[in-house]
Design a protein around this nucleic acid. Structure first.
Lengths: 218, 218
DNA sequence: CGGCCTAATCACCATCGGGTGACTTTGCCG
DNA sequence: CGGCAAAGTCACCCGATGGTGATTAGGCCG
């Protein structure tokens, strides 16, 4: 009945409707990709059995058969996104030397912002997380938190934060700021008077976050 | 046809259903309050003509007649919230001396967090702003941004930020962090590993924001 | 009393949502 | 060939939604 996200992802998606292929794996893949696309484009509001089936070009019954309903499909998509941070936030230093823990967080803010800005699906899911609470969603949030913690741990090397600094809280604040700015940018193009459209705007925003991170860890 | 929010607010709401009062102003008030309550409780997803009418205990037709439909009702609610920052973020110093511009922003973060945490309706609207973009919503966001700018201007006194500090960007970052943390707290109770449930948790979060604000403006 | 304005309701429409059982097609295998 | 399991489709059900036109009920005034 249920299929793992890994299996499904092997099928690279068949975007346009063709006559029924009579290939379960491929049909599963089409449904899966249709779900992702729909979520990325219209958010959870546009996400429904009928819509997914329409987009996948098959009968909605198959969603129930192959994924056990919408919840199952969401689970599959979520499972596939479990390693998102690890996959989308690179672990190189971009040619820079990270001299202090503050530099590290500055870099994280920058990379996290880039990754989010490049991924509509993840942005929609973040908004979803703010809109309602459900087991699926909680799991995704947890996975992201762990991914970020791992990133820091791996990149940290021998860098240590100053004594008395509440790293968990400070890091959460940095990530929170980035996240809110990226999400707000999409719908309103600005936040609290700060424009967030051009690349230049983003440079400004990121360097503000960077300044705060560095200063807080000084 | 349309009524201003000010007029409507005079009627303090009649929570339970009574037999038709045959009083236009009062009925308008009930519809208005029903809309607010519904929005506050279930977010924009729970917000619909039928639901509002049900909650207000009247026929949905009246929503069209008195407000020109759902959009009009949203406008009325939004108009009423135009002065939210001014009304809910106090402009006293809570017995503290604000010695630096950093202190000022620290205080703003604290007060803004408190105000948001106390107002479910505004939280829902913030999430709404992240979910879709529409004229109503854009107006509300603008009004908030202006309110915050006014707060700073009025509280600033003779305090000035250090040279070279991009105040607009830094302030936006502070506000963004607070906002994201408050919103995340509601649905998941934590953010990036930082718990956000007890009052103690909030103290921790706020002091992290405060540390960053102070440090960045040092 | 009778008329009249208006608050409020009713009945109805089309549409879309999630969900299910019965059906048809296809390809494989003995 | 005949049968059978799997892939896929069809035809429904039900409830809720946004939206509208016709209708009723109530108070005020001459």
């Amino acid at each position: 009945m249920n299929a793992t996200a890994a299996e499904i992802l092997e099928t690279p998606a068949a975007p346009e409707k063709e006559l029924p292929v009579r290939d379960r794996a491929q049909t599963q893949g089409r449904i899966f990709q249709a779900g992702r696309a729909l979520l990325a484009e219209g958010g959870f509001q546009a996400f429904g059995v009928n819509a997914v089936a329409r987009k996948a070009g098959c009968d909605k019954q198959l969603i129930y058969r192959y994924f056990g309903g919408l919840d199952g499909l969401v689970d599959a998509i979520g499972e596939d996104l479990a390693g998102w941070v690890t996959q989308h936030v690179p672990e190189d230093q971009g040619g820079r030397f990270l001299l202090t823990y503050g530099d590290l967080m500055e870099r994280l803010a920058e990379l996290y912002a880039d990754a989010l800005r490049a991924d509509p699906l993840m942005r929609r899911i973040l908004v979803w997380e703010l809109s309602e609470s459900s087991p699926h969603i909680a799991r995704m949030a947890d996975a992201r938190a762990k991914g970020i913690a791992q990133w820091i741990e791996r990149m940290r090397g021998s860098l240590t934060p100053p004594k008395g600094a509440d790293t968990v809280a400070l890091n959460a604040v940095v990530i929170a700021a980035v996240q809110q700015l990226v999400l707000a940018a999409e719908t309103s193009g600005s936040f609290a008077g700060l424009p967030l459209k051009s690349q230049k705007d983003w440079g400004r925003a990121v360097s503000a976050v960077a300044r705060m991170a560095r200063a807080a860890y000084a």
